[in-house]
Design a protein around this nucleic acid. Structure first.
Length: 454
RNA sequence: GUGGUUGUAGCUCAGUUGGUUAGAGCACUGGAUUGUGGUUCCAGGGGUCGGGGGUUCAAAUCCCCUCAUCCACCCCA
């Protein structure tokens, strides 16, 4: 048993059937991205650690997979440091690269590096795997695919609106009912401002975010533990009970509250404009202003977006937001970007749980031809060629195995039609077509068969 | 990082208060059926019971350690 091979925790193999389903998701997303004028790029699986560190907050840094330097990496450390046994101190000496944690930061790096070749605003999409050293559980993997679309080099809120439309279209195409939650970091900053804790923005919002799960009292307790004063907590109370109110009610409450905070006001105006512009379009899913939506990634500065499936219990299946200064860290100032990311693996799990993968998404070989031997094979190859020329996916068994074995192969691979081309068929000129679902057989010419299946 | 769950055949799992040679279904191989799969019947191959240690005349079963796994929290896609 100890000899059994395995793969690292949180990673997965994908069987042919699973790949067909996954490709259906990727293709759907790709199609919508292209429809909105985004073009594709790819970046390496690994980045320099200096590119990745410090971009995702304290939690994020811990979850980075680091790659050990090649060669005798311990040479560069000195004995005193090693003796301290503090991995955080020596890790920078023995590891200079890491696996990418998301696609947004590598993209920001890409933009800075290729700024001379890019015509702004730059609309790119990217579908690649990312790695996080999290503990796996339901809907959470250590290696998973993100499908990102970002617009960089444009402040216009039209980008936010378009991204929301993309989200709506993708989930409509996939037949998943979702709630699109939006908020704005500037509103959260305004709230933190107004209660006199501008520096505790993240702590406050992360705690508020949990109100649905743990209730108001527990939220207050957590805030007190983080050093938020009772006065400030009291001021926050009206927000705790907004859940479920209409967007207008939320905005009204907010207007009173952050009216004298410049940044809060700005955020409110942005949200209002986005919602106003969205009215032009008929969306199939609800867009909800969720003032407790925070998102931990530290680079967001404006709009933030999160999508949850209505009918399945699962973490967010899509998220995103605006980041004003991500490229600034790499030396390109004043370039604002906004993007979204679909979690393909969670979407897969949702589709599976709801059992709504369309049958057409898992279509494989249409026609199977058993191999009857050297002589018959020649004829079969001609038929095969003709079928393929007509766009019909077809295959011939590579060797003259037993009929039972060959039929089992066709059955196992869900191939709907089998064409028998043995000596009797070759003599008569008519082929035997077997429908594997009904078991019926009929003599037909190749042309008739092609017409029927194509 | 914190808390819990479960480890028995390729897969899903039975296995009584510790007691002969550890079982079933599915899958696989062969046959009934040498040109017909999915249904049926017959036969067969497959296991250091996660690993190590302990208690006992005797351990899959009890105890300790360890590894793995899944789930929840945290965080997120």
């Amino acid at each position: 048993m100890a000899q059994k091979p395995s793969i690292p925790k949180g990673t997965r193999d994908f069987s042919p059937q699973e790949m067909a389903k996954r490709n259906y998701i990727f293709d759907t997303i790709k199609q919508v991205y292209q429809l909105f004028g985004f073009s594709q790029i790819e970046t390496p699986a690994m980045e320099n650690l200096s590119t990745l560190m410090g971009k995702y907050g304290e939690e994020g840094d811990k979850l980075l997979f680091k790659i050990l330097n090649s060669g005798d990496f311990l040479k560069k450390t000195n004995r005193d440091e090693l003796a301290q046994v503090e991995s955080s101190k020596i890790s920078t000496k023995i590891s200079e690269k890491g696996l990418r944690y998301d696609l947004t930061v590598p993209f920001a790096r890409y933009v800075v590096q290729h700024r001379n070749d890019i015509q702004f605003p730059f609309k790119r999409y990217q579908i690649q795997s990312v790695w996080r050293a999290d503990r796996p559980q339901k809907g959470r993997y250590r290696e998973f695919f993100q499908c990102d679309a970002d617009v960089i080099g444009s402040n216009s809120l039209m980008n936010e609106v378009e991204l929301l439309q993309i989200i709506d279209r993708v989930f409509t195409a996939l037949n998943i009912k979702v709630t699109i939650k939006i908020n704005n970091r500037k509103i959260l900053a305004g709230i933190a401002d107004s209660i006199g804790h501008p520096e505790r923005l993240i702590d406050i919002t992360v705690a508020m975010d949990k109100i649905d799960k743990i209730g108001p009292e527990a939220v207050y307790t957590e805030m007190r533990a983080k050093g938020i004063s009772d006065d400030a907590i009291n001021m926050l109370e009206p927000f705790m009970n907004l859940q479920g109110n209409s967007t207008n009610q939320k905005l009204n409450c907010l207007r009173e509250f952050v009216g004298d905070s410049a940044i809060g006001n700005q955020g409110m105006l942005e949200v209002e404009e986005i919602l106003e512009r969205l009215k032009t379009f008929k969306l199939n899913n609800e867009v909800e202003l969720d003032l407790t939506l925070a998102r931990g990634l530290s680079y967001y500065t404006g709009a933030i977006i999160e999508v949850v499936a209505n009918d399945v219990k699962m973490g967010s299946i899509c998220g995103g937001g605006r980041y004003d200064d991500l490229t600034g860290i790499f030396g390109l100032k004043d370039v604002s970007g906004v993007g979204i990311s679909f979690g393909a693996d969670r979407i897969y799990d949702v589709l599976n749980e709801l059992d709504i993968f369309p049958k057409s998404s898992i279509k494989g070989t249409q026609v199977f031809i058993p191999n009857f031997g050297k002589e018959e094979e020649k004829e079969a190859l001609k038929i095969l060629e003709e079928l393929r020329n007509n766009g019909i996916a077809a295959e011939l068994f590579p060797s003259n195995a037993k009929m039972k074995k060959q039929m089992t192969y066709a059955n196992h691979n869900n191939i709907p039609f089998v064409i028998m081309a043995g000596s009797t068929e070759i003599e008569s000129g008519l082929l035997t077509l077997k429908n594997m679902e009904t078991g019926e057989q009929a003599s037909k010419s190749l042309n008739e068969i092609i017409e029927m299946i194509a």
